[in-house]
Write a protein that binds this DNA or RNA. Sequence first.
DNA 1: TTGTACGCGTTATCAC
DNA 2: GTGATAACGCGTACAA
Lengths: 334, 334
Amino acid sequence: MNIYDISEKAGVSIATVSRVLNNSARVSQKTREKVLSVMAQYDYVPNPFARGLGLKTMRTIGLLCPNASDYYLAMALSYLERMLRKQGYDSMLLCTGKALSDREKGVEWLISKHVDGIILMGSTFVEDNENGNKYLRNAATHLPLVLLNASYANENIYSVLCDDFHATMNATQFLLEKGRRNILYLYHNRNYSGLKKLDGYKAALKNMGVPVQEKLIQYFTEDKMSIPDIRDYILGLDRKGIKFDAVVTSEDVMGVGVFKYARIIGRNVPEDLPIIGYNNSSYCLCCEPELSSVDNKLEMLCEQSVITLLKVLSGESVPQKMVFMGELVLRGST
Amino acid sequence: MNIYDISEKAGVSIATVSRVLNNSARVSQKTREKVLSVMAQYDYVPNPFARGLGLKTMRTIGLLCPNASDYYLAMALSYLERMLRKQGYDSMLLCTGKALSDREKGVEWLISKHVDGIILMGSTFVEDNENGNKYLRNAATHLPLVLLNASYANENIYSVLCDDFHATMNATQFLLEKGRRNILYLYHNRNYSGLKKLDGYKAALKNMGVPVQEKLIQYFTEDKMSIPDIRDYILGLDRKGIKFDAVVTSEDVMGVGVFKYARIIGRNVPEDLPIIGYNNSSYCLCCEPELSSVDNKLEMLCEQSVITLLKVLSGESVPQKMVFMGELVLRGST
DNA sequence: TTGTACGCGTTATCAC
DNA sequence: GTGATAACGCGTACAA
């Protein structure tokens, strides 16, 4: 069933059918009803490829995700897809790895598919050197980009993010105010967001006049984080004689690893070792006691990402950068 | 840049460009190189819409997911997308809810988008009454369907699943052999997979001559499972005077809820209360002690789903149903 | 081995 | 209000 068949059955031209379809232009009520009834009768649905060919769009947004099995990103995926589809947009999912070359390929792939825009999920996509971001600038010449939880200032690139700096600063400060002076900061990413969090940690110390100890800033390099690996890593620090009386991590799952360490070594949480994670994911509720964490308002970030992108596509002007405040959620671990 | 531009620059016809593009037919080495160099020079990429129009396919698979934020499904999504793209297929993600009407709409939506096939993730999509599966039979007349972890016998519908019956039976039997006689079975879904698991639980009891106690079979009805909700639910059972000395759950997250209950009530895991979950997800490693669980070979299921679907699309014949064995992974909770 | 011409299903632009 | 017709960019018989 195509538009010609319908036009024939309805006794009109394809132009009229098209008008009814896009309920544009003025079509007489009578003709419209006639056409609609024929379309209904034959379950007619316009061919999306042909439509795409003419309109140069299939109303599809590319979702670039470093890893859909990451709890936080999976949540984001879920929100984004729902919100996009509510606006009549399809979601083309593409899981790149973290490697720069894979991310570049991912972006190119989506561009070649003529998606209308791309949402890049997580701060993985922004490098801390200009050269590594060339692919973003180049992509932005083809279509609008939205960075979810990252920031990069460029024409046609929009950033929607949580203020990781202040959120981590507040978390650290909370522990300082409890009298902790040797706070271990454990992180996993040196991307934009990762560095902001680290800065927040340092800023809190500075504000309170506590010297920064480099050995208390630990970068967990393993690409894939597993709870046992993190546990062992911290056990290793302990064996090296590094002393700490509180922990802030850049992700909840690392906080869970700290719990494991504490249990093995016999330190009580929170009395001996308060812990604060990041993301407020369901990992927090698994622990005993439950893990305090920073809620970075994921649902709102997703919503604004979608709204921003669709506005850009419809030619409206939108802020180039939107920043939300994180919120420290206190539970049993502090 | 379209195929005409390229053909002109290369001094050949579009047909030749097309041949080079689809490296089919025999094109002289010289011509091929000439065309390729021009394409490279202008960064030419064929328009996917025009291609789709002619070929009646955009090499896109629909991924129907009841909820991408579910840990297990998020993992599956990640595997599926990667494997599909490796074969040159795009993934169109669609998160339906669990409601039948939403699932129906989701399937229809994907059909209207002319995806080449659909992978339905999780057993949510098969109802236990024939009438509720009409939409599957109807969809199968348009395109091939693969049920990931569900089963439904029908032309053009393929099932790839784990043997939940035997897996749950084995888990239950393991506890029976440890001398437990009042094993609580906690489940969340009455779909195909959910009922199979339940049957497995009952079969294990029967095999050992232990009577089934209906009050020990608890159906957690809340649509959204949260750990605190599950904990409270079990506390409620306890208050009602229901006695149990072991627990098998249909999903890991419920197992975590049981941990929370045990801690509050002061029962030790595993001495007083061994627990076995299902899915072998990362929830298992968060608990203390770690949660024993059934590994249902998700990665293999995903791989086979993709292989099956692509074979069907290329006209090869494949088994209508593939069943894998689950594996009981024992950890500290038993 | 290469080129011509048409079909694919829709939207947009005219003319009537 | 409505209809004819030209794009849109590619694949592919068929012809050369």
